[in-house]
């Protein structure tokens, strides 16, 4: 039986889904909205960017996504230092929907790995300024603990680099982060296919945030649906307390009662 009532609490909010999705990279907005609906997500991430003054306002995401229907989480994607992250965070908050933020401070262009020192510094300032910070970070326990210490409402270690689709490359560290932190752990980035999402949830984490895996699938709506099921399956598998693996065979049928 799939757990019917398995809500996720982050900060002062309760979410009915453990799958969070991004809104970037879709071929068109109609597909994006259909995929988001198929995912049954509780939270969607958005980016803050300059308006292209020579194009129509339909380019903006709010033209397609109703903030009353989807909880919007502005991100600081593309920021490489504390100052820029704070600026983007404040612009995101000024849109007027909430004080929630996905903090991302990138340290390297080719791997998009986070600058963990800058992330901690920015998180500290933003939390003091009233933001509810969900911080994207490496699969590094010490950084996760520091982010929790400075008051982040959730810590979001990567499964593997952003957009790589490699799945969770270090399940041991992900489990250790989950075991040691008290705030929810949302694995962010790196999931490629539904089995990755399932395996990630089987590590006991509280949720998964993904974008490319759904947006870049040949059929994003179908993949969104697969991800929804995979997240639920992985969560139920974790909660069910699966058997211990062993390297020898053990028969499933009785050895006794065989014909002589």
């Amino acid at each position: 039986m799939i757990q019917e009532k398995d809500q996720l609490e982050i900060g002062d909010r309760v979410f009915n889904s453990r799958l969070f999705v991004g809104t970037g990279k879709y071929s068109d907005n109609e597909t994006m909205v259909k995929a988001i609906k198929a995912s049954e997500t509780a939270m969607v991430t958005v980016a803050v960017r300059r308006i292209d003054l020579d194009r129509s306002q339909e380019e903006g995401i709010l033209f397609h996504l109703d903030p009353d229907e989807f909880f919007l989480l502005p991100n600081t994607a593309g920021c490489y230092n504390v100052k820029d992250a704070l600026r983007y965070a404040n612009l995101g908050r000024a849109a007027g929907f909430s004080e929630w933020l996905k903090l991302e401070v990138i340290g390297d262009e080719s791997t998009l790995l986070p600058d963990t020192q800058a992330t901690i510094e920015a998180a500290k300032i933003l939390v003091a300024d009233g933001f509810k910070v969900m911080a994207y970070t490496n699969d590094d326990l010490i950084t996760a603990l520091r982010l929790e210490d400075v008051g982040c409402v959730a810590v979001m270690p990567l499964a593997s680099p952003i957009g790589s689709g490699l799945g969770v490359v270090n399940p041991y560290f992900i489990r250790e982060i989950k075991r040691r932190c008290e705030v929810p752990i949302i694995v962010d980035a790196g999931v490629g296919v539904a089995s990755h999402a399932c395996i990630t949830m089987e590590q006991g984490v509280d949720g998964v945030l993904m974008n490319t895996a759904i947006a870049m699938a040949e059929n994003p709506v179908l993949m969104a649906s697969a991800m929804r099921l995979a997240i639920k399956a992985g969560r139920s598998s974790y909660l069910s307390g699966g058997m211990q693996a062993r390297e020898i065979a053990v028969p499933s049928s009785p050895a006794k009662g065989m014909l002589g």
């Binding site: 809104t23 970037g24 980016a47 803050v48 300059r50 919007l72 957009g163």
Partner: peptide
């Protein structure tokens, strides 16, 4: 950052630097 309530009262001056941003798709 200028709050929306003040959009009508703030006059733009010569050489002002203005950024107009919105939410777009992102991960």
């Amino acid at each position: 950052i200028i709050s929306k309530e003040r959009f009508g009262e703030i006059e733009i001056c010569d050489r002002d630097q203005i950024e107009l941003v919105h939410f777009v798709g992102g991960g």
